[in-house]
């Protein structure tokens, strides 16, 4: 028995956005970055912002984000993406400027740049991928690593007395007046990815409307760093990460920031 598939606009259910390049992604199978990249590319395409968008990639696994989305990119020094994005947006305010950063980049080495860009209310979007580990360097402890979690630099599990506590930078930046939107999302299921995409769209719209900084955290798995299968890693994330990093909107400013 054979099926003949007729490709017509009516029966097309999915197509890759032309903004995603055909480059084979360097991410590990099971990694969340690929899905998040796709969502970002789709939002840019749907909003018609390809020629207006400048992405700022970090140091970490997503350093090569510029290989995967057909927009202009600036690759920033480790932790400095928000400073780089600040200048790009201030000097070209008609542009859509976003940073794409991991938890090591944004919440460890880049804490100062991130917090102050938030506090100045730069009209940019910060996409913060939190998988509680340093993936690129081989699975070391991050500021977001959960207590008890084993990593290359906390081989016995993270102990508060030695390493301090995991921290929630999304909640911290939500207290700053320059920030208009803080949300925590995930992409481990089609339903979660749809919600995450909606959040990204909201954030991009905020930036173009000049409402201040929008901060979108993506709680993600790192099956390689966590030393689990992709399926197990997602399950572990749901059972361990989500209770600590609770999903949903943290701040939605109803009033525009005061001039």
């Amino acid at each position: 028995m054979s099926f003949q598939v007729e490709i017509t606009p009516e029966n097309k259910v999915y197509g890759k956005t032309p903004l995603l390049t055909d480059n084979v992604m360097h991410y590990c199978p099971g990694c969340s970055h690929g899905t998040i990249h796709k969502l970002v590319a789709e939002v840019i395409e749907e909003m018609g912002l390809q020629d207006k968008t400048i992405g700022v990639s970090p140091v970490g696994c997503s350093v090569f984000a510029y290989n995967y989305i057909h927009i202009d990119w600036i690759q920033a020094a480790h932790g400095r993406a928000c400073a780089v994005a600040t200048a790009a947006k201030r000097l070209t305010p008609e542009k859509m400027v976003f940073t794409y950063q991991g938890d090591g980049d944004l919440s460890a080495i880049g804490t100062a740049e991130s917090i102050h860009a938030c506090n100045r209310g730069e009209n940019i979007v910060v996409i913060y991928v939190n998988n509680a580990i340093y993936g690129m360097t081989g699975g070391q402890m991050a500021p977001t690593t959960l207590l008890g979690m084993k990593t290359a630099t906390s081989p016995a599990g993270r102990e508060a007395a030695i390493h301090g506590y995991p921290y929630k930078i999304a909640e911290i930046v939500s207290m700053l007046d320059g920030v208009c939107y803080v949300t925590r999302q995930s992409v481990q299921s089609p339903a979660a990815a749809r919600k995450a995409k909606k959040a990204l769209r909201q954030a991009f719209e905020n930036a173009m409307a000049g409402k201040g900084l929008s901060f979108v955290e993506m709680v993600s798995s790192c099956n390689s760093g966590w030393k689990q299968s992709p399926v197990d890693a997602n399950k572990w994330m749901e059972e361990n990460m989500f209770p600590f990093y609770k999903l949903g909107d943290i701040k939605v400013a109803t009033e525009p920031k005061e001039a």
Partner: peptide
């Protein structure tokens, strides 16, 4: 544009971002 940054580290990376935009 004139921005008082939070540190010299941030200043030079703002310069990097601005220079990237051909400014």
């Amino acid at each position: 544009v004139v921005v008082q940054a939070e540190s010299e580290v941030s200043s030079i990376n703002m310069v990097y971002g601005g220079a990237a935009c051909g400014k």
